[in-house]
Amino acid sequence: MRNSIKITATTAVAAALALGLTACGTDSDPKAKTESGAKADTSKPLVVAANPTPHGDILKFVEKNLAAKEGLKLQVKEFTDYVLPNTATESGQVDANFFQHKPYLDDFNKKKGTHIVPVVNVHLEPLGLYSKKLESLKDIKSGQTIAVPNDTTNGGRALKLLADNGLITLKDGVGANGKLSDVTDKKGLKFKELEAATIPRAISEVDAAVVNGNYAIEAKLKPSTDALVLEKGEDNPYANFLAVKEGNEKDPRVEKLAKLLNSPEVKKFIEDTYKDGAVIPAFGPVK
């Protein structure tokens, strides 16, 4: 029996307020929890916040097939946004999360004053440019509109993807940290900034859209065939990882889950489940 709870965007509003208030209290101290790290109660389930796809799917595979052999009790809480998993981890309402990459986490910690740290890389979801109206990159012309994520890190990542493929020009040296104000040559293109989760639903309303890998999967897009262009996987800094509140890295349950998430069984699950290139194994330490 799977011990899984799904929290949708519509039910998360009240939770967001409660979690935000909690995170602003004394528990924002990374050493505030009494049962953390190596002293954690290993008889309790490890509660992990995750986006449903592919993160929740990977965790459920571990829960169903691997966790019991390691003596690990695993509970998955699914969130459909990019904020609540971190605030819930910070407040102690969950023990860990699995949904983000390091540039996003670094920016989140800086802006929110949280103390979340990565544990181990698991997979990469290549960012892609999609369109319901155009057949290839060469069909993108002056005057057309491209939707991009409105959060800092995924927005910069999207602009870099466009720049790498000659659609725009960015200021020298901005890399994946670019903002729309860093575009030195829009080549006549217009941009519409939207929340990452909403972009797949807006693809038909624009000429093209940059979509995160997990949201592409949920929207039934096939990156290997549907994307006009995809990010390259080699040396990509956007691997998604297991993360915890600082001080909880040595929790034996976290260490067991980290080991399982980098196991041959999980590698095979990812490769067998996401044959269209939407998810790629990216095991190892977070750099």
Rank of each mutant, 00 (worst) to 15 (best):
R2Y: 06
R2N: 08
N3S: 13
N3V: 13
S4T: 11
T8L: 08
A9W: 05
A9E: 13
T10L: 08
T11K: 14
V13H: 09
A15C: 02
C24S: 15
D27P: 02
K31H: 14
E35K: 13
G37I: 05
A38R: 05
K39D: 15
T42G: 01
S43P: 00
P45E: 06
P45W: 00
L46S: 02
L46T: 07
V47L: 06
A50V: 05
P52S: 07
P54W: 08
H55N: 11
H55F: 10
D57T: 14
D57F: 08
L59F: 06
K60Q: 11
F61H: 13
K64I: 05
L66R: 03
K69Q: 10
G71V: 01
L72C: 00
K77A: 13
F79N: 02
V83E: 03
V83Y: 14
P85W: 04
N86T: 09
E90C: 05
A96V: 04
F98S: 07
P103L: 07
Y104G: 06
Y104V: 07
K112E: 08
G113L: 13
P118I: 07
V120N: 05
N121I: 13
L124W: 01
L129A: 11
Y130F: 14
S131R: 04
D139I: 12
I140W: 05
A147K: 04
V148P: 04
D151Y: 12
N154Q: 14
G155D: 02
R157L: 10
K160G: 14
N165Q: 08
I168Q: 06
L170M: 12
K171W: 06
K171V: 04
G173M: 12
G173C: 12
G175I: 01
A176P: 00
N177D: 15
S181V: 03
D182N: 11
T184L: 11
D185P: 07
L189Q: 03
K190L: 11
L194H: 07
E195A: 15
T198F: 08
T198Q: 10
T198P: 01
A202Y: 11
A202V: 10
N212Y: 12
N212T: 15
N214M: 15
Y215D: 10
L221I: 03
K222P: 00
T225Q: 10
D226S: 05
L230F: 06
L230V: 14
L230T: 13
K232F: 05
P237S: 09
E246D: 11
G247D: 09
E249P: 04
E249S: 08
D251H: 05
P252T: 03
K256V: 07
K256A: 09
A258Q: 05
K259A: 15
L260P: 09
L261H: 04
F269G: 08
E271T: 14
E271Y: 09
T273H: 00
Y274K: 06
F283H: 01
P285Q: 11
K287M: 09
